[in-house]
């Protein structure tokens, strides 16, 4: 297997020209799937026999929560890549991805709370999953705050990579400890870990919205990376040429 593509990832110029045609189709495809999934799920899928219509929020909550975790995994991996191979694209990716992940975690929290009100009777329950998403949100905010307060670019890159890697190592432990906390607490918590078997009309729209949201986020992150590349490389000749030829 050739590793050439991997080394090419170190060059922002290569990445920029390679990725130029990607974001728009990916983004549009994502939007398309998302619209289908959401419309299907919210309007046409049959209501749950236990939870009625309130279950429909899973078409937002589940994809968003999945994204929030996947984003952190991606951050940690790219942080590792940066620390080991000094790949220039990795910090750009982290910078582009962190706010998206934070927003996903926030939406997951809010939609979870909205779901919790009719289902559990309260907006908030110290349920293991909710708590770990809350911690995930804090981790994202930490990375963003750190990047914003460090003026020096080299230091900001290293710092974000270090904290992402440490976060990735810690995340399973945090998750495990939170689950442990919940199972040992004798509080009045409901756990909805066992999902009922879903009919196809229910999970197909879910699949659509999950795929749609992944593509949607991929498109947005690619765009953010491209603009970050332009900002960081604004002194280099290829950026000047690019702007002269194609405009902004």
């Amino acid at each position: 297997m050739s590793w050439a593509w991997f080394h090419k990832l170190g060059s922002p110029k290569w990445f920029f020209s390679w990725s130029k045609s990607w974001p728009l189709p990916v983004f549009c495809f994502g939007c398309f799937c998302l619209v289908i999934g959401l419309a299907w799920g919210l309007a046409f899928a049959p209501a749950d026999y236990q939870q009625g219509n309130s279950f429909r929020i899973i078409y937002i909550h589940v994809p968003v929560a999945m994204l929030a975790q996947s984003c952190y995994l991606a951050l940690g991996v790219s942080g590792f890549v940066f620390l080991v191979w000094q790949m220039k694209m990795a910090p750009i990716f982290i910078k582009a991805m962190a706010p998206i992940g934070a927003i996903m975690a926030l939406i997951a929290l809010v939609s979870g709370a909205i779901w919790g009100k009719p289902t559990w009777g309260t907006w908030w329950v110290w349920d293991a999953r909710l708590t770990s998403v809350l911690v995930l949100f804090f981790l994202y905010m930490g990375i963003i705050a750190l990047q914003n307060s460090l003026e020096d670019q080299v230091l900001a890159n290293k710092a974000a990579a270090v904290i992402s890697v440490v976060g990735l190592i810690n995340l399973p432990i945090i998750k495990y400890s939170v689950v442990l906390l919940e199972t040992l607490h004798q509080g009045p918590t409901f756990t909805l870990t066992k999902k009922p078997e879903m009919p196809a009309e229910m999970w197909l729209p879910l699949l659509f919205s999950v795929i749609g949201l992944y593509c949607f986020v991929a498109g947005v992150v690619l765009w953010r990376m491209q603009s970050e590349i332009l900002i960081r490389e604004h002194r280099s000749s290829w950026v000047k040429q690019e702007v002269m030829e194609h405009g902004l």
Partner: peptide, 14 residues
């Protein structure tokens, strides 16, 4: 504080 406290949660819990 913001950066590190979330990492301390497992230690406190255990």
């Amino acid at each position: 504080m913001l950066l590190i406290l979330p990492f301390y949660l497992p230690v406190i819990i255990f």
